[in-house]
Amino acid sequence: MFAISIVHLLNDSMQSTVSALFPILRDSLDLSYKQIGLIAFAMNMTASLLQPAVGYAADLKPRPYILPVGVGFTLAGIVALALAPHYYVILLAVTAIGIGSAIFHPESSRVAYLAAGSKRGLAQSIFQVGGNIGSALGPIMTAVFFVRVGQFGVIWFAFVAAAAIGIQTFVARWYRDQNVAGRKKAKAGALPLHQVGLSSRQVMWAVVVLVFLVISKHVYMSSISSYYSFYLIDYYGVSVKHAQWFLFAFLAASAAGTFLGGPLADRFGRRNIIWFSILGTAPFSILLPYANLTWTGVLCVLAGFILSSAFSIIVVYAQELMPGKVGLISGLFFGLAFGIGGLGSAVLGWIADATTIAFIMKLCAYLPLLGILAVLLPKDKHLYA
C-alpha cells in the first residue's frame, strides 16, 4: 500500500509541474487564459478517455507489467515539457503525461483494492493521499524553483520518474503474485464476491448521482488549482511566489482531507461522509470570493480539507455497488475526475478571458451545493444483500 502511495506521490508531483508552470508559461510564451486552459484540457482529457478502457481491460486480464510502462510515458512527457520551445510542443508533452496517468491510476487502484482487506476506505485514502501530496508540491516547486530557473527546471523530474519506475517494478511483481494466488483460490472454490442488495436500475441511478457529485467537486477543484493563484496576483497584488504558497496550503489541506475521509467512512458510513464532504464545503466556498486576503486563505484551506475527503469514498462506494468491476469503476471515476478537471479548466479559461478571474471564483463557489444530491444515494446497508 505504501509503495503504491509513494509512486502516486511521485506520479502526481510530475503532473503538477504542468499547472505549476502556468504562471511561468503565461509570461514567457505570452499565453492567454484560454491557452492555459487548453494545456490542462489536453493532459486531463487524454487521461480521462483512456482510463476506463485500461480499467476494463484490467478486469478482463490484469497486466502488472504495464505499471512501470505507464510511468515511462510520464518520463517522456516530462523531458519534452522541459525542452518544448513552442506552445504546440507543450500540448504534445502534456498528452504523453496524460497517457502515463491513464495507465497508472486504474491498475494502481486495483492494487490498493487487493491490499485493502476489510479497510477499503482506509486503503483507498492511503493510495490517494500520495497523489494529493504530489499535487500539493506543484505550487512549492513554482515558489522556490521554477520562478528562478524557469521551464527547463522540469528536466530534474526525470530522476523522479526513474525512481517511480523502479518502485512500480517491485509493485508489479507483488501484483502478479497476488493474481496467481487469486486464481489458485478460485480453483479451490473460494467464496464469491458479495451481492448488492439493489436492483440494476438502483445501481445505475446511484452511479449517476456519484458522477454528478464528482463533477461538482472537480470543477471547483479545477477553478482553484488552475486560477486561484491568478486571482490572488490580480486582485490582491501578491507576487507569483506568494500566491503559490496560498495554493500549496489549499492542496496540503486537500491531502489531509483525503487521508482522513477513508477511515471516517469505514466508521461512520460511505454515504454520510460523501454527504458531509461536498455539501459541507458550500459555506466556505461561497464566502471565499468576498473575504480579505487573510480570510480568503483560511476559507480556501477549510474548503479544500472538507471537499477532498469525498473522492476516495466515492470510488470505494462505486466499487461496492459493482463488485467484480474494480478496474472499470476505478478507470471511470479517475478518468471522469481528470476529464472534468481538464474540461473545467478549458471552459473556465474561456469565461475568464471574456469576464474576469473574480467572476470565475464567484461562479464556481456555488458548485458544492450539488452535494445535496447525496441524499439520493442508497444507505450503506443496502450495498449488501
Rank of each mutant, 00 (worst) to 15 (best):
residue 246 F to N: 07
residue 286 I to H: 11
residue 250 F to C: 00
residue 362 K to W: 07
residue 359 F to P: 09
residue 317 Y to I: 00
residue 251 L to Y: 06
residue 322 M to Q: 15
residue 329 I to H: 01
residue 334 F to H: 12
residue 272 N to M: 15
residue 296 T to V: 09
residue 287 L to D: 13
residue 286 I to E: 07
residue 291 A to R: 06
residue 360 I to A: 01
residue 248 F to L: 03
residue 334 F to W: 06
residue 243 A to G: 02
residue 299 L to G: 08
residue 338 F to I: 11
residue 308 S to R: 12
residue 322 M to G: 10
residue 241 K to C: 11
residue 300 C to I: 09
residue 275 W to A: 15
residue 272 N to W: 15
residue 305 F to G: 10
residue 298 V to S: 05
residue 231 Y to I: 02
residue 359 F to V: 04
residue 320 E to L: 04
residue 241 K to H: 09
residue 344 G to Y: 08
residue 356 T to A: 04
residue 309 S to P: 06
residue 353 D to V: 04
residue 266 D to A: 09
residue 363 L to D: 04
residue 334 F to R: 10
residue 319 Q to L: 06
residue 319 Q to W: 06
residue 237 G to M: 00
residue 231 Y to F: 15
residue 332 L to I: 14
residue 227 Y to F: 12
residue 291 A to M: 15
residue 335 G to Q: 03
residue 257 G to C: 02
residue 314 I to N: 07
residue 337 A to V: 14
residue 271 R to L: 11
residue 348 L to M: 11
residue 303 A to C: 08
residue 349 G to F: 05
residue 226 S to T: 15
residue 254 S to Q: 08
residue 313 I to V: 15
residue 243 A to K: 04
residue 324 G to Y: 04
residue 345 S to H: 09
residue 297 G to A: 08
residue 261 G to N: 04
residue 283 P to Y: 09
